[in-house]
Structure formats: C-alpha cells, structure tokens
Design a protein around this nucleic acid. Sequence first.
RNA 1: GUGGCUGUAGCUCACCAGGUAGAGCACCGGAUUGUGACUCCGGAGGUAGCGGGUUCAAGACCCGUCAGCCACCCCA
Length: 426
Amino acid sequence: MTTYRAIRGMVDILPDQTPLWQSMETAALEVLSSYGYAEIRLPIIESTDLFARSIGEVTDIVEKEMYSFPDRNDDSMTLRPEGTAGCVRAIVQHNLAVTTQRLWYMGPMFRYERPQKGRQRQFHQLGVEAFGVATPDQDVELIALSRQLWRRLGVDDALQLEINSIGSAADRVRYRQALVDYLSGHRDQLDADSQRRLDTNPLRILDSKNPETQALLESAPALSEYLDTETQAEFAALLSQLDLLGVTYVVNPRLVRGLDYYNKTVFEWTTDRLGAQSTVCGGGRYDTLVATFGGKDTPAAGFAVGLERLILLMQSLDITVTAAADLYVVTADENAYRHSLPRLDALRRQFPDLDIVQHLGGGSFKSQFKRADKSGAAWALVYGEAEVSANQVSLKPLRVDAEQQTIADGELATFLAGYLAEAHSA
RNA sequence: GUGGCUGUAGCUCACCAGGUAGAGCACCGGAUUGUGACUCCGGAGGUAGCGGGUUCAAGACCCGUCAGCCACCCCA
C-alpha cells in the first residue's frame, strides 16, 4: 500500500487554519470594495508565450520557475506564476480599458522554486490592478488601500514600505548603459550571478545581497539621476501625498523588482519577522503592458500580496481566529432527536446567521456534552425527555458561568434574536 | 539550481556503547440513574519517511532517495 503525500511545495490548508484564512479574505474583500475595486476571475492556465512576453524572457521566473507543458494539441501552456499577465490579457481581450478599471483577484500561483518557509510552489496571491490613470494619485490610492488592509488585519506595525522610481523605459535604457559601463570596469569584483546579469539584466545587480557587489555599487551611477523631470516630479508628488496620509516609507534607490514590465513607481511592503522571505506585498506601475498586448495605450499600476506570508505574519503576531458554533444541540434519545429535527430546520430558516451544530451518532448525555464543550459552542441546546414532553428546550451556557434555563418552545426565537443582537453589538 | 541541518505515535519530543520503542498533550471509554470544563482510572495508537548496505543483531552506523527547515538564489 503506497502512502501518498502532497507533492513538493504544495501544501494543504487544514480546517484549523481556514478560519484565519477566511477572516483575512473577508477583510480584504471589504477593504477592496470600500475603495470601489471589483473582482475579476481569471484562468489558472494561459499560453506560455503570454508570460514570457510580459514578465520578460530573461527573468528568473520565465527562465527556470514556470510550470510549462504541452497540452494535447502540443501548444505550450503554463500554470500562472503571477496574475498581472492574465489580467491584462483579459482587459485587452474584452476591451475593458475604454474606461478606468479598478480590479482585484485572488487565487493560486505556481512557481517551481526550492521550498522553504514563506515560499511554496503553489501559493496564493491577492492581486490588485488599476487601469487608465497615469497620475500618481493612482499609486497613492493603491498604497493607501494596502495599508488600510494591514491595519484591518492588525499587522501594520510589522510592515515597512520601501519605494522607488525606476523611470520610463527610455530612462532605463540610458541608465542601463551607464551602469554597464561602470560595472564592466570592475567585472572581476562582481559575484558570479552579477557577472551573468551584466549581460542579461544588469538592473537586477542593484539588489544583490553580496557585500562586495553592494560596496561596488556605492560609487556607481544612481538611477534617480537618469529620470526625466516629469518622472521626478511625479515621484515627488507621490511621496508628498503619502506624507499627507501619514504613510511612512523608505525610499530605496536599489529597489528594482524582478519583472520587466514595471516602470516609474515600484514598491514593496516588507517585514523582519519572516526570515529571508520578507516581502509580503510588492507592485508598481506598468504603463506599457496593455499596449504590448495589443490594447490601446493604457497606463496601469498594481500590486500582489503573498497570502501565505501574510498568514505567517499574522501568526507571528499571535493573531488567531477560531470558528465556534452558537448552538450545539443535544438530544436524549431517538424520540427527542425526531422532535428536534423540524424545529431546528425552522430555526435555521429564521436565523440564517446562527451557527447550529447538531450532535450526530447518539451517545450518552455525558458524551454529547463533552462534544458540545470541545466544539467551542456558546450554548448547548438540550432536548431531553422532560423538555420534549413539555414542549420546552433547555439552554445551557458553555462559555460563561451561568445557570441553565428551560424555556417554552415558543420563546426560543425571541431568546435567540436577543442573543444575536447582543453578539453583533459586542 | 548550490551549501547546510533535520526526519521516532495526530502534535511536541525522549530513550539507546547498535540488542526488536517511551513521555506529555491530543484522542476514545469509565468514575450509580439526564449535563461539559478540573481530578482520578483505563484504552487505543508507531513494520522509527522510504529503499538498500554493514552487523549474529540497526530507529540508532554507511549510502541512496523523498520531504521539511535555514542560508544563497528568487520573489509574493
């Protein structure tokens, strides 16, 4: 008998974890809709070409991390490594860019990397994308929105915003040349990865962690000096609006990000509580991507949140959510069970928000109450022999020290309405 | 993809100069007749990740493999 395990880098999210996930998802949904963002649902598989063109042929993601395979028609398909490409594809395909769009999506992404904490092969992202606004107020809204989510989740104190402007494509062509010119003179002092990147993707050398490389970069030309005046003004405006909102940030001139489609604003929310996988959220502006895919010229910006990392961060801060029912129903015997069945059915209809768990499988009162206690339910709803024959029910509080009370069937609805009102105000 | 650490009951771990495994928690049952939590008693649960080797004998040593973790790398 072979025993099966989830394949490497793919993890099960078990029932003791899903309440935390759901509360996070609900918070995100509420924050997003409060800013007028609408959900878009996208396929998990797209043509390989889509990702290669948008993310960049020489990026690590495309070169060695994609789950690509030929389908039965021998076309090359890829499990999405990120969400922006598919979102932009949908925008163009359905011609949604005729007006501005504020969109979000949530779902699994796939990257063939070596797993460690905060890094899986299948992981989940919340993506937020905005199309049609070229001015920095859009960037500000995205950042403000993300910070609102951190506050809502109670993780804002653990997160730091790093931000930079990487300019237009033209700016970067000029800067890239200057950087290559400078570093070529010191080629032998670069680490192996950086030497390789000198020919392929020189800007990525900027965020190398190698100390010698970093030292070398101290006297390298600065990207900020290659930005045109308009971009500089926009970046300054963006920062001043963040100041207005009281968003604290660190301008990190070495922040460049690993996907080719970004321009102008790039930013990351990072934490020191997750070890090496410190980026919880990252994004920026990508003004040319829509046109690249054949749409009309449409400015755009967005970000992605790593949901596993967010959960890890919440857990590191001892944020817990438990799902416990309101009522756990205990019945004395077959007759009491039959008596309770239609009554509970009516209750569920009358109180859709009430969580009612019925004890199944019989057993002694004692064992049923044990289960009731372990379930975490607030009350045990008791149908004993006496209650049934008198058309009554007993309510035993399980979480507070108070007396059990027995009331008439007809009074239960009133009681529960009062309980729910109290629970909501609490 | 590179380097390192780890892998024993559901969970956290222990034992042992190499001689066929234990604890705590969790789980199930019981402590007189319709009531949980605390306590007490009892029970179930492991071919020691998997495969091979050395040995009279291996969970303990060696090799391989798989998986997790840490760093690199990468990014969310």
